[in-house]
């Protein structure tokens, strides 16, 4: 009792500070050890692996220096993988951001039913990509798939969506847009909420129509959110796509949907060229790092959310 009064009078007593310190140390020390082992050491280990001809079953893993990286430059498949990765990343991100923007803009003013609509658009976000990719694979099946059957009813010849080098990638991209749209819509809706109503009111009093409102007020004020969506989309895109492509095409036909994430998995765990795969993961790391630094530069103000 007396102690409490003394502490009340003196504010934070020295005993309290000691207790706080103990608390912080007990929480932080295991955390730091964990991160050191599971998050930082593996990066160096991975780089070490990438300097070796590392196979899971080989007893010897000879040091080969930067040969794995040099091989990537010489390899004819790797440029194709990079091209596929960029194709999927940019097409998926920009189209997805565009569709989500349209949905958000017309969903925002709606009152009645907006919760149900948001729920519907969000459903694919919650669904395991493995399951949704399975459904899409079935719907895009050449002979019995829903899409081709509907096209047939309109008199259009079946398209071998996932068996064609032209259509496989667009199909995978479409599935990815469908799967991620709801999340982007929610981000845009959050951005739209941040725009003060007064802006619209004053513009309306001045006689602006809805198109003018959208072009002159909404879009300029939403620009930071749009660029956030685009940049994080591109960053995520480079390492993404594994699950959908693994399920829908396995990277085929003729490697036309083979993206970096799938390629790394395939080399490491199917072909067991772990050194080569590690070098590819470092290329991915470098790309993501550069893009992230660009993002920080562009969004320095918004970064501390």
């Amino acid at each position: 009792m007396i102690q409490t009064i003394v502490q009340k009078l003196t504010g934070r007593g020295s005993t309290l500070r000691a207790a706080e310190h103990r608390f912080i140390i007990i929480a932080l020390v295991p955390t730091i050890i964990f991160y050191a082992i599971v998050k930082f050491y593996p990066i160096f280990f991975s780089f070490f692996i990438s300097l070796h001809e590392w196979s899971l079953f080989g007893n010897v893993s000879p040091f080969v220096g930067l040969d794995n990286y040099a091989l990537l430059a010489k390899d004819s498949l790797f440029p194709k993988v990079m091209w596929n990765t960029m194709y999927r990343t940019f097409a998926g991100t920009f189209l997805g951001a565009l569709f989500a923007l349209i949905v958000a803009l017309i969903l925002n003013p709606i009152k009645r039913g907006s919760i149900l609509l948001r729920l519907i658009y969000f459903l694919p976000v919650m669904t395991s990509v493995i399951a949704s990719a399975t459904i899409w694979k079935w719907m895009l099946q050449t002979r019995f798939g829903l899409l081709n059957q509907l096209l047939l009813m309109l008199g259009i010849a079946p398209v071998p969506w996932l068996q064609s080098t032209t259509w496989a990638m667009p199909s995978v991209i479409a599935m990815g847009i469908w799967a991620g749209l709801g999340f982007t819509v929610i981000i845009y809706l959050a951005g739209l909420r941040g725009i003060p109503r007064d802006y619209y009111e004053s513009a309306e009093i001045d006689g602006a129509n809805s198109l003018q409102l959208a072009l002159k007020i909404t879009l300029p004020l939403l620009k930071p959110v749009v660029s956030f969506v685009l940049i994080t989309g591109v960053i995520g895109g480079f390492s993404g796509g594994f699950q959908a492509i693994y399920m829908m095409t396995g990277g085929g036909p003729l490697d036309s949907t083979r993206v970096l994430a799938l390629h790394i998995y395939d080399y490491a765990f199917e072909r067991l060229f772990m050194g080569q795969a590690a070098s590819m993961s470092f290329v991915l790391f470098a790309i993501v790092l550069v893009l992230t630094l660009v993002q920080f530069k562009l969004q320095r103000v918004d970064w501390e959310l």
Binding site: V38, I43, S46, Y265
Partner: peptide
């Protein structure tokens, strides 16, 4: 920011 693919191989071996 580090993609999981970077961890895949070393974590598996560990």
């Amino acid at each position: 920011i580090i993609p999981f693919e970077v961890y895949l191989i070393p974590l598996y071996l560990m």
